[in-house]
């Protein structure tokens, strides 16, 4: 993409009513380029994503680093679950076990990049093949981060293959247990905040 085009695009974003803040975020995180999982084309995140939920600290941090600060944050799980049930479970199953879409709760990925936060975000935002349409326009960015945290939480694979976990997270990893979640886990999580952990 030529510089001129990029310039045009930002100008366009600003003109079409995205807040100036939106435009600044965009330029500030120019180092992270997000790409469509199939075509490799650059995703126009700020042109497509809903206006709300764009400028949370977590979104800003994610767009800059490609690391999802909500991973492992309990307080984000109920939100992530809600988004998942609304937008994904019909095709991927209640627990991510797979239906007309592949399972999301194991460690096998058609697209290896989905082991990273950034890759999974790109697949959700821009879609993949067939019925895996893009969800960038219908989910708020902050919601997508909570959703990714929920998908990781659904995992029942082996911790050692869970590339998205840090060593510390691997050590404390427990495979998802639906009974426990419905029993007490969800109520407990709902009491906590969905924010970036202090440290």
């Amino acid at each position: 993409m030529t510089l001129k085009k990029i310039y045009k695009k930002w100008a366009c974003v600003a003109l079409t009513g995205a807040s100036m803040l939106g435009a600044t975020i965009a330029t500030a995180n120019a180092q992270q380029v997000f790409r469509n999982t199939i075509t490799g084309e650059e995703l126009k995140i700020l042109e497509v994503a809903p206006k709300e939920g764009r400028d949370t600290p977590a979104v800003k941090s994610f767009l800059e680093t490609g690391i999802n600060p909500y991973i492992g944050v309990k307080g984000c799980l109920p939100r992530g679950e809600e988004a998942y049930l609304v937008a994904c479970s019909g095709c991927h199953g209640h627990l991510g076990e797979g239906k007309v879409g592949p399972g999301l709760n194991d460690n096998y990925w058609t697209y290896p990049k989905n082991t990273t936060d950034k890759g999974l975000f790109e697949t959700i935002f821009g879609g993949a093949q067939g019925m895996m349409g893009p969800h960038g326009g219908d989910l708020q960015l902050d919601e997508v981060l909570a959703l990714i945290a929920w998908i990781r939480n659904l995992n029942i694979g082996e911790a050692k293959d869970a590339e998205w976990l840090t060593d510390a997270q691997k050590a404390s990893f427990k495979p998802f247990n639906a009974k426990e979640w419905d029993g007490s886990g969800k109520a407990e999580a709902a009491k906590e905040q969905c924010t970036i952990p202090a440290n």
């Binding site: 797979g98 399972g103 194991d106």
Partner: peptide
């Protein structure tokens, strides 16, 4: 559209 290696590729429909 699934890939054959996927353990869930045999599920459901």
């Amino acid at each position: 559209v699934f890939d054959l290696q996927d353990p869930t590729a045999g599920l459901g429909a």
